[in-house]
Write a protein that binds this DNA or RNA. Structure first.
Lengths: 137, 137
DNA sequence: TGATATTATTTTCCAAGTCAACTATTTTCT
DNA sequence: AGAAAATAGTTGACTTGGAAAATAATATCA
């Protein structure tokens, strides 16, 4: 290990994350979709009508960043905002038809990327990895 | 697993990375140093006179981003540039005395963060994690 | 050699991110 | 009830990041 920073967990994690994120970004770019946009689409599909706050935690973004990304998604017609029913401070997000369509198109791309990683590692190491990473949070 | 995106490796990796990076960022901020700045300092200490290109790969940054960060580090007096001896296109970076001093101050902080993670996981899982992450690149 | 291609780094211009302050709404507490 | 505190989300000023083009030096090869 010639370079000292390679022995830090934070570094190894950053390096692996960068590689994987990079590759996914490239794959999604061909469909004009950002990784985080995909996460929002997929999340909203599973649990419609999420609030901005919840969504921000799930998709790993800071609230102001999410707000601006959602602005773009609204402009692109993927999603629309709706004031919360019980709590008017909240904003609920919902997929548009186009948003749902786009998600389906793109899901396969992400799935392929993930399958490739799973093959690379093997099922048992994937499980191990998930377990270990889960304990880091 | 209520949310579908949680089952993707890329997501778990991003989540763990975010948590660890966040925590390190906060710890370093008190010393006025960015995580990537620390990586550069530590790398230069081990292998003085790195070129921008090599450094960019090691510290996981794109060349234009590194250039700008180094501009700031030069302004802060942590580092200075020197044209390559054999190849004049290259730029070699070297620590200043202040840079070396700053690195020593900050190294302990990073080491503490890392030790905490190692304790959390245990030695054998740290080894497993390193091995698995290594195969993702 | 000298024209052409390649490589290393930087610059430019624009998109995206951050921090802190702000608005609007709901809770809490006396 | 009603003033103060807390919460959800957004905005604005500013900084940082990224893609592609520009610059400068070296390598290639006819």
């Amino acid at each position: 290990m010639k370079n000292p920073i390679e022995s830090y967990i934070s570094y190894t994690l950053a390096a692996a994350h960068r590689a994987v994120h990079q590759s996914l970004t490239t794959a999604l770019k061909q469909h004009g979709v950002q990784v985080e946009v995909w996460r929002v689409l997929e999340t909203l599909d599973a649990q419609p009508s999420q609030t901005m706050g919840e969504l921000a935690k799930i998709v790993l973004m800071n609230p102001p960043t999410l707000t601006k990304m959602v602005d773009r998604m609204v402009m692109d017609g993927l999603v629309h905002r709706q004031a919360g029913k019980n709590d008017q401070r909240q904003v609920n997000l919902m997929l548009t038809d186009l948003g749902r369509k786009r998600m389906t198109q793109v899901r396969q791309v992400v799935q392929n990327e993930d399958d490739a990683l799973c093959n690379l590692l093997g099922d048992s190491d994937v499980a191990r990895l998930n377990d270990i990473l889960g304990r880091l949070m």
